[in-house]
Amino acid sequence: MSMEKYVFSFSTKMVVTVSIGAALYGVTSLVGIPIGPNTQIRPSIAILTLFSVYFGPVVGFLVGFIGHILTDMLAGWGMWLHWELVSGIFGFAAGLVFLFPGFNIKCGLYNKFHIIFLALMGVVGFLLGYALSGITDIILMGEPPSKVFFQVTVIFATNSFVFLFFSIPIVISFLFANRKNSSLEVEK
């Protein structure tokens, strides 16, 4: 298994990764367990987090953005580009952990700091994304600010909760599973 990491290489593999990732994210976003009006616990956030962590921020952004457009098209809600951008921003933020030289999910390399960084960046990504789309909704659609604020807060809280308590454990389990691939250890 190679240790090389590319943030952005315009290769065939990158094109295929973005396509399969977007298709997978788009399809799994249609599945969820309802926990309230218009709110669902969706496994797709974990898929997006994994793609970001595996392939970096650029792939994370594209998978999130294109995949979310696909979901809205498949579910029949039309296109809402500024809400779809939220997934892209989240994918980008979650993928930043990929840039650390000591972190490699393919080989199961990580430490505690990386996990905390991933958790923090994911929440920051949601915060930025939803703040941006909320402001866009106020400016472009002319929605009342207090209503948008309420809406955005609820969505932000649910998604951050799912991210922190369901996606991160899955990332950790992947790190654990992949660690078995390397029988070598650094001597101290």
Partner: peptide, 28 residues
């Protein structure tokens, strides 16, 4: 229910990773 739903992600992601490699090789 929630736990079982998230459990599906592990085989799904693994098969996606394999699929990416297979398609990349076929295209190249």
């Amino acid at each position: 229910r929630v736990k079982n739903l998230f459990n599906i992600i592990i085989p799904l992601m693994n098969s996606a990773l394999e699929r990416i490699d297979a398609i990349t090789v076929a295209m190249e």
